[in-house]
Design a protein around this nucleic acid. Sequence first.
DNA 1: CGCCAGGGCCATA
DNA 2: TATGGCCATGGC
Length: 244
Amino acid sequence: MNKPTSSSESKALDRGFLHSLAVLYSMYGSLEWWPAETAWEMMAGAILTQNTAWSNVELALANLKEAAGFGNFTASWLVQEDPEDIKEWIRPSGFFNQKTPRLFDLAQWFLDHGEDTKKLSTMSLDLLRTELLSINGVGPETCDSIVLYAAHQPVFLIDSYTRRFLGRLGYVVPRGYEALRSDLETLVRAEEPWLDGDFNLGAASAVPYLQEAHALIVEHCKTHCLKKPLCPDCPLRDSCEQRI
DNA sequence: CGCCAGGGCCATA
DNA sequence: TATGGCCATGGC
């Protein structure tokens, strides 16, 4: 009840969180956030960005696209290249010894599905996630980024930003990935927020809503809710529990 | 200089 | 099941 001002009481996740996303939307607008010309470029970026700044990923992707030739950077191109060459091309993104075999494995999986995102979009969500998670180097976040931005299936994509953001807002954040994903998706499903002005993110259905939600969280965490937060200029300052 | 970035795997207890 | 070490580069 009477807590020290610096440590507020945590609260259960509620629709106030969806309202906070709407505030971010009014601030940042619609974000074209996962820039990729093709589905395969998106998937490759998902591997390359693991614990890595996006600016470094851009350097690696530019090398790959240049090596493949304009418009020819595909999964089928990658799998017949020399892994040692791939390592050099993706060097700027770091962890290249790990990421190179991961790119090959993911490319092979995409080839097994005919390099066809329409097939990915029509398979069951559970099967799609199970298959992706079985690939070495594809954990829950990489998996769901592909599900949401390449397969266009509805998942609430969670990354370290999402956890930090929820924590800063004062919410109890479940430990496990699936537990938090379940909570957030339950919340969204209960409100169908894209139908409600108070929760409007400018999206008319679940997938674009979830894409925008994740984009807004990342944008906000990169510009305001940093590890060392910039609270004075934060659009959520009035409602945030952790403001400094 | 040190810190950090749109994780995931593996060994250990 | 839950931490901790490890992987590597470029920007600041």
